[in-house]
Design a protein around this nucleic acid. Sequence first.
DNA 1: AATGAATGAGGGTTCATTCAT
DNA 2: CATGAATGAACCCTCATTCAT
Lengths: 212, 212, 212, 212
Amino acid sequence: MSQAATKAKVKSRTASKQARKTQLIKATIRSIAKHGLSVTTMAIVAKEAGLSQGIINLHFQSKEKLLEETLRFVVDEYRNAWYKALESSGSSAANKLLAVTGVYFDKRICQRNKLAVWFAFWGESRSRPTYRKICAERDREYKHVLAGLCGEIIAEGKYDACADFAAFGLLAMCEGLWLDLLLTPVDMTAGQAEAVSLAYLRGIFPGHFPAN
Amino acid sequence: MSQAATKAKVKSRTASKQARKTQLIKATIRSIAKHGLSVTTMAIVAKEAGLSQGIINLHFQSKEKLLEETLRFVVDEYRNAWYKALESSGSSAANKLLAVTGVYFDKRICQRNKLAVWFAFWGESRSRPTYRKICAERDREYKHVLAGLCGEIIAEGKYDACADFAAFGLLAMCEGLWLDLLLTPVDMTAGQAEAVSLAYLRGIFPGHFPAN
Amino acid sequence: MSQAATKAKVKSRTASKQARKTQLIKATIRSIAKHGLSVTTMAIVAKEAGLSQGIINLHFQSKEKLLEETLRFVVDEYRNAWYKALESSGSSAANKLLAVTGVYFDKRICQRNKLAVWFAFWGESRSRPTYRKICAERDREYKHVLAGLCGEIIAEGKYDACADFAAFGLLAMCEGLWLDLLLTPVDMTAGQAEAVSLAYLRGIFPGHFPAN
Amino acid sequence: MSQAATKAKVKSRTASKQARKTQLIKATIRSIAKHGLSVTTMAIVAKEAGLSQGIINLHFQSKEKLLEETLRFVVDEYRNAWYKALESSGSSAANKLLAVTGVYFDKRICQRNKLAVWFAFWGESRSRPTYRKICAERDREYKHVLAGLCGEIIAEGKYDACADFAAFGLLAMCEGLWLDLLLTPVDMTAGQAEAVSLAYLRGIFPGHFPAN
DNA sequence: AATGAATGAGGGTTCATTCAT
DNA sequence: CATGAATGAACCCTCATTCAT
């Protein structure tokens, strides 16, 4: 049992409903990261949370609902980090772009365990419309914001580029680099992946992201 | 039963050992594409192939082996298309790069059903080392070839760019665009995705991929 | 929540121990009538009573005890109506017989919901000796009283009949008619069922139950 | 394990599909008779049949379907005996009535175990429309035939009676007597129950069923 | 080589019961 | 007294695998 699970064992019978749900969601994430989505069972999640079998159906109606809320949790957690970076990075569009790109490869977010969770859900998204919707919504939101930032930069620098294409390409590249980090962690570190994405930005917006 | 399954039935009598295995692998791919990996059972695959329950364990030792060989089949099929495009695209490095990029978004390859299969396997790759190895090997191979092509172009055009970074970025972007096509097919077509990747190439190698 | 349940909630604060038990028993009866015995769970009963989950095990030792007391309640309630009818029907044996027969098809008693409860318990009686005993005792008691009444009538009318047989037959017919009302309520009303039983009495004791 | 179950153990892997279904249905009946419907689980039925857990869902889609087919089996078995008696009892309506009444109390049919099965299903019929329909259909059929026979007898004997009422009463009495035999087997035997029903027939059709 | 009935371990889920509050 | 979150045994059902044919 992981350290987190052990800590969870120090439990009271009166944890707030939301706290207990979060506890179970986190146990689910750990299980997917460790064993994969297809191996993750109710029993494993419950044990990982240090709780009993029946508790999941007490707080979520079914395994499916648990997984949906888990996906939502992961998406929201990421989104929070994203907007936080966006807001705390000054007013320059270039700096903002740099900041949110950085989020993708942040040590706290870009861990193989977490990447495994993303790909686990993406892998199931074709056959589970709910997953697809949640992920699609997220993608659209990011694309919209990124296209806005790229648009500002293009206007400033009078670049011959399409804001949408630049934004879509950036997002796609970041997610594609996640795949690299998942599959070939030996060949590439998060830092190198970030460097690749920055090389992209430098390539299309050379005036705004000068080589260091 | 699909048309493909019906056709499979006809040839079942005289199928050689290898042909039977391929028949089952193709049925597996169809099932993953249609229902998802987690829903794909031995019974569904057998039915999709127009054959009986027990036959899979006769030709493959287990479900796991079937899935591994299926992944290998998908990877190989893709690789063949890749090299074919590479070879039939003349001697110019730029043309070759264009050709292999085109493969990613080729009508015959870039279909949601097939993308679903890729993501299904990637989604399980963290917890199944065998999947990971097969996919990782494929990635390394492509990266190596792409880096070579990018190196040639950089030398030709005297671009201020890193060949590895350009190649890694291209590959990552293409795979990231696949995710877009999987999640938000309404927002983006394969053609647009290809345009995004070409915009990338134009951005970093403007002399070799002029705007049309 | 039903109206009854809402009303129950209001009085819950000041309910005495026995009143609370009765409240739960009535909720049990409503649940069996509505959903059936096999679907009736502690949670449903508690909710129907407008009370909390754990309360049943506080007042009854187990679900089994609750069901036993519920059966006893139903039996007693019926018995009360029976003797009340018996006593308030004058001194003539024929009138008494008419009165208790009428109880079986009384609007207040002969409702499908209530019949469902009787048959639910009878259906389980084979495998639960306690149920069987309670029901058997009831049957014996009624048979004894009915046989006495039939005996009086036979003596009065000098009928060529066996008092026991007439009584057993009457009781059996009434309970068999309940089955009809349970299974084919469209084909037969309580009034018609009563007419059938009266036809029986007229048939065997023509002088005492003349055709109207 | 019962004798029947032991015999079932001498099994082949190629019993016909229908034979295996019947085997499971008979095991279900034994289980309901022994333990009651509410205690009857898939595991118990499978064990009683000398087969494995999963087999029930192989031949029936669900427990519910198994129970439905079991009820139908019981109903059909009874109906067969009923019509056989009807046909082999000569042409006289009175004899036919006697014969089918006899079926109710036949040693081979009127066993507590079998009665328990009937009442088990009746007890659930309120909450399971399918059960109710099957039982109701059966009741209607019998009532119709019995009313026809009673009509003939009434015409022959010029009795002052209603054919429907006589028939409904007879059927109800027989089923009510089953309840007696289920609840108070000590107080009454099948023979006595039959005598009660004959007393009824004699009472209403004295010319056709003379006292012996 | 091929079939498909049979197996049984293990999945998700329910629910009577317990217990800290 | 009363609550309701928590438990865990036992339910029904699925499905990879086996095996007699």
